[in-house]
Structures are given as C-alpha cells and as structure tokens.
Amino acid sequence: MVIELVKIKNRMKVDLKDLITRPLGEKFYKEVGKILKNASPNEVILMNFDGIEVADPSFLDEFLVKIIMDSKKTEKTFYVKLSNFSRLTSLNLKSVLDSYSRFKNERIAVATNQLVDNDRYCIGNVDNIEKSILNYLHVNKSGNAKEISDYIGYPLDETEKILKELDTVRLIRADESGQHHYFGI
C-alpha cells in the first residue's frame, strides 16, 4: 500500500510544502490510521514524502513514531517504509528516533527505499553488520539465513539472532512459513 502524504496534506487544505507542528501530526496519524485499517496482515506500507519539503521533529513524533510503534503491535503487524523524503526530514527523524530510543530504552528504526547518511537503507540505529544485511536484502530482495550468514561472514546461529532482531524492529520481514527466509522491506 502506498500512502501519498502530499494527497493527505492537500485534502486537509494545508497550503505549506512542509509538514510542521504536533497538532498537524496528530491529524495525520488519525487520517492514516483510518487507511491502515484496510491493510493486509504483514503488508508493507510505503509512506511517500514526494512533494513534502520538510517534516519537523514535532510532526514526526506525533505522526510517524506512532505509526512505527503501531506496526509492531501483535494484533495486526505491518511494515513501514519511507520514500522520497528530503535530507532534512531524514535528519529530523533521526534526532527523534535517537531520543525515543534513549528515553524509552527501546529500539526504533524505519526502513527506507533510498540511501540515507551513512549509506544505509534505514533511519535509526543499526550497526555495520545489520547495515550489510539490509543492503544485501535491498539488492537481492530476499535471502535465507544461510546465504546471509555466508555473506556477512557470521556463524549461522548468530546471524539468525540478528535477523530475528531486525524483523522485530520491522526492518526486514520474515517468511511466515518459518523457512528462515527473509525479505527486504
């Protein structure tokens, strides 16, 4: 499912090219929440920022952080991926996610379809091994634990732990059949 943020912005009659303020973030969260009710289980939701110049930290906290947290709820999981966002939006989001992780002591990150600073396909804290896995799955679209273990040069059992963790954070998607197969978001 693709969510075009600019269309929601236009529906709400927001003239600005930027998404700013907490109250607007709350409105977006409610609006997008209605759309997400129609998502299939484990569906990838592409948040398209095309046409948006800057999303400020307050907006992102009220809107995107809540959507990312909702994606982890067990009753209906989904995956979020961001596209066509500006550099400033990614920097603002990184500052928000870093603060969230620090104060809540909980890992939070989001997949992206474009490389962001530090050459990775996600925003949030990932280490170099995780970054390699994400890059591998971005290029190859999918892979099993053995292939990925060979690629990163880690033992299979440790690789599987990392893959499970990345799935929990919603940066990759595990095969529901339990075949140790993983997909890029």
Binding site: D18, I20, T21, R22, E53, V54, D56, P57, S58, S86, R87, L88, N92
Partner: peptide, 20 residues
C-alpha cells in the same frame, strides 16, 4: 543547499513553544 530547510525546522520548533 539545505540551509532553508534547516531554518524552517528552527522557526517551526521555536514558534510552537509559544502556544505549547
């Protein structure tokens, strides 16, 4: 290149503090 976007963030965040 990005200075305008940086200061859009600055203006937005500081001004919000007034009503918040």
């Amino acid at each position: 290149d990005d200075i305008t976007d940086y200061f859009v963030t600055v203006i937005s965040e500081v001004c919000q503090n007034i009503f918040e």
